[in-house]
């Protein structure tokens, strides 16, 4: 007897797109979203970039990071506010990000789907490694 595995992908309503969108995150999106959560209250482009680079040992260009941030914001997973500025930025404001409730649901959903896969993984496979 074969048992199929069903993964339920939650949907959310995107006000930006005006349609229901799957709450699925891309790989970089997931990393950025998590990093914003990690940095809690101190998340703007440069710190996020630093955090990813130091924690994960991979480089992120400002271009791809900015695009990802804006995309997450437009999907409703992040929200942003202008913060203070200083001499280092020559007066340009910092744009801080924080996770929205939708964002939290989205990472949770991502983790759940991963977990369900992990749980389905036969112990044997892991041992072999």
């Amino acid at each position: 007897m074969k048992v199929g595995i069903f993964v339920i992908v939650p949907y959310y309503y995107s006000y930006f797109e005006g349609i229901f969108m799957p709450m699925q995150l891309g790989e970089l999106e997931e990393i950025v979203l998590l990093t914003v959560g990690v940095l809690h209250g101190n998340a703007y482009a440069i710190t996020i970039k630093d955090e990813i680079e130091s924690r994960l040992g991979r480089t992120v260009t400002l271009g791809s990071l900015q695009v990802t941030l804006r995309r997450l914001e437009s999907k409703g997973f992040l929200k942003s506010y202008f913060g203070e500025s200083d001499e280092i930025r020559r007066g340009r404001p910092r744009l801080y990000f924080e996770i929205t409730a939708y964002g939290k649901k989205a990472i949770a959903a991502t983790r759940d789907s991963r977990n369900s896969l992990w749980n389905a993984l036969p112990k044997l496979v892991l041992k072999l490694k």
Binding site: A45, I46, L62, Q66, S85, R90, P93, R94
Partner: peptide
């Protein structure tokens, strides 16, 4: 609308 923040980032990175 993106410009101010990104330019700030660039300044910071440049330093």
């Amino acid at each position: 609308s993106y410009h101010a923040d990104i330019e700030g980032d660039l300044h910071e990175l440049y330093d």
